[in-house]
């Protein structure tokens, strides 16, 4: 530690702002009590302001303090248990992610697996493969009623396939982003927990949203098909190759303007 003595000037402590503030408060308190209080307050605040200004003009009243040098930088006296810093303290985590395609492929694979299982289930329970298509399309098609759920309906078939494909791919893409964020048990998370959460949400709200549709759904079988989707999509995504994010590359490289070194 050095012992060089420097001095700095700081404003002299003063009670005038306090007096002015007290006076001002009393001035207004005059409205609440009596004019006398208000007048006393007015006088006090004028005195306070004059005193304050005389602290400033003609000379700025200051006192000199002796500055003791103290250690900069401070030695670290930390309560932190380890002195090892986070190796990626500046990075955007996770450092490695899946390619966009893997989410896409995972979604398609999960969607196909789910389709197969649903059709088999429909055969067993209703003696017809068309039940799930009709129920799915019923959410947007008014012509589908409880009576014709097992008949083949071409429009319903196409609509249902469209909804199913969109949802499967959408959720597959979400898996692609979310699973590497929770790298510990991607399969359990993807196959069980996430499908369970959304199935539960759907189960809890469907009765309010569309009670008739709710009647037609076999919820335990529904859950099974969701698990199948989650399991297949989860495996496909988490087994796919991971790549480094571009965060350590220069902007020109990220934008594809420069190719950078081969690595």
């Amino acid at each position: 530690m050095t012992t060089t003595k420097t001095t700095i000037k700081v404003p002299k402590p003063t009670a005038w702002p306090l007096v002015a503030a007290f006076g001002l408060t009393l001035t207004f308190a005059g409205f609440l009590t009596s004019y006398l209080v208000g007048i006393i307050g007015g006088i006090l605040s004028v005195i306070g302001f004059i005193g304050w200004f005389k602290d400033r003009f003609p000379n700025n009243l200051e006192i000199t303090v002796e500055v003791e040098a103290h250690h900069i930088p401070a030695p670290v006296h930390s309560t932190k248990s380890t002195h090892e810093e986070h190796p990626h303290h500046r990075a955007i985590l996770p450092l490695k992610i899946h390619r966009t395609q893997s989410g896409l492929i995972g979604g398609i694979a999960g969607g196909i697996a789910m389709l197969i299982v649903s059709v088999i289930g429909s055969f067993i329970m209703h003696g017809s493969p068309w039940y799930p298509f009709n129920v799915m399309s019923a959410s947007v098609m008014h012509s589908i009623t409880e009576q014709n759920l097992t008949n083949f309906n071409a429009i319903a078939f196409v609509v249902a396939l469209g909804i199913h494909a969109t949802l499967s791919i959408g959720i597959g893409l979400v898996y692609g982003v979310v699973l590497p964020l929770l790298p510990k048990h991607p399969i359990i998370l993807g196959a069980l927990i996430i499908p369970f959460i959304w199935s539960f949400l759907l189960y809890a709200t469907m009765n309010t949203l569309n009670p008739v549709l709710n009647e037609t759904v076999n919820w335990s079988w529904f859950l099974v098909t969701q698990f199948v989707f989650g399991f297949v999509a989860g495996i496909v995504v988490s087994k796919s190759e991971k790549i480094q994010t571009l965060q350590f590359k220069a902007f020109a490289e990220r934008a594809g303007i420069e190719t950078g070194k081969n690595d």
Binding site: P17, L18, A20, A21, F22, T25, W52
Partner: peptide, 12 residues
């Protein structure tokens, strides 16, 4: 000083 004034106004 304005800082002190602000505090005392609040206080009173």
């Amino acid at each position: 000083r304005l800082n002190a004034f602000g505090f005392w106004l609040f206080f009173f």
